[in-house]
Amino acid sequence: MENQLNLIAKSYDRGIDFGRRGIDLYEDLPEHITNHPNYPMFQRLKMEGLSDSGRKEIKDYLSPDINMKFIDLGCCLNLMFNGYDKWLSTYHGVDISSKTIQLLNEFVAKKKLAIGSLYCGSIHETPFEENYFDIGACVGILEYFEKDFVEKAIVEAHRIIKPYGSFVLDIPNVNSPVFQITMLIEEHLGRPDKFNMSSQEFNVMLQDYFEIEKTEKVAGMIQYFLSCKK
């Protein structure tokens, strides 16, 4: 687990370094990826600007309001690029990449945003009190981990979200041709996907912690819209 966390941190740190220089690592992929028969579908979705984290459906479901605290687990740059800075709720972000957190702090200072906190660390061990958050999300993260870590992340999310709080997360749709390309890209970027569960197994894991209100298939992933059980 620690090795995988380190790989993910280093990979995203590297992505931030290249991004500051104006280099998009997704634009320089090897031929075994770009020549794959499923790559055009992936590229088309990317050109259409489809973002798992930036979907209107997430905001509609969470209904962020001025008196709510929102936790973004594995936040990446959602605050900068997916409109989370416009939400009325108080933003808190957690990410394993120190350079991601550094860039977000720079963004917050430059835009003079009023947020809650930005924490560099793993999503399975956060510094927050029990039942602290009204709403939360964990999108594009669980695909990197095997079952044991995924369960720890679910338990932690359950701990810090209030009873009946709304939570959105996603897991890979392993049969999707788009996810097959995503796996190749993530491997190339040095952060291989390790998710090793069926959706049925994941549903069983969730049942003691969250009520599944609906699911949607999006760009190679399955998004879950959940209510926190207590």
Rank of each mutant, 00 (worst) to 15 (best):
H36A: 09
W87I: 07
Y91E: 07
M47W: 06
D65Y: 06
L25H: 07
L88D: 14
T90D: 06
R20Q: 07
L79F: 02
G74M: 06
S89L: 05
Q102R: 12
E27H: 12
D28E: 11
K56Y: 07
I66N: 05
F81M: 06
S63L: 10
A114H: 10
S97Y: 04
L88W: 06
K111H: 12
T90R: 05
H32T: 05
G54D: 08
M41F: 14
G74Y: 04
S63C: 07
C76L: 05
K56F: 05
F42T: 01
L104G: 07
K110L: 12
S97G: 06
G116Q: 02
L77H: 09
L73T: 13
E106M: 05
G83W: 03
K112V: 00
S51E: 10
I96S: 10
W87L: 06
L77F: 11
D85A: 11
F70T: 02
V94G: 05
R44K: 15
S63G: 03
Y26V: 02
V94H: 02
L118D: 00
C76F: 11
K112H: 12
L88G: 04
G49T: 14
K110D: 08
R55I: 14
P40T: 11
T90P: 00
I115H: 01
N105G: 10
H32M: 02
L50V: 15
S89Q: 04
Q102G: 05
L29V: 10
T100W: 00
E31D: 14
Q43A: 15
M41T: 09
M47E: 15
G49P: 01
I58D: 08
D65T: 13
K99W: 00
I23E: 09
K86F: 10
E31V: 01
Y84K: 15
M80P: 13
C75L: 08
K59H: 03
S51C: 11
D95V: 02
P64S: 12
Y26D: 02
N78C: 12
F81I: 09
A109M: 10
M47H: 13
D95R: 00
I96L: 13
P30A: 10
L45Y: 14
P40V: 08
W87F: 12
G83E: 12
F107S: 01
V94M: 05
F81Q: 06
P37A: 13
D95M: 01
D28L: 06
Y91R: 04
D72T: 07
R55P: 04
L29T: 09
P30H: 12
R44W: 03
V108E: 03
H92W: 01
R44F: 13
F107A: 01
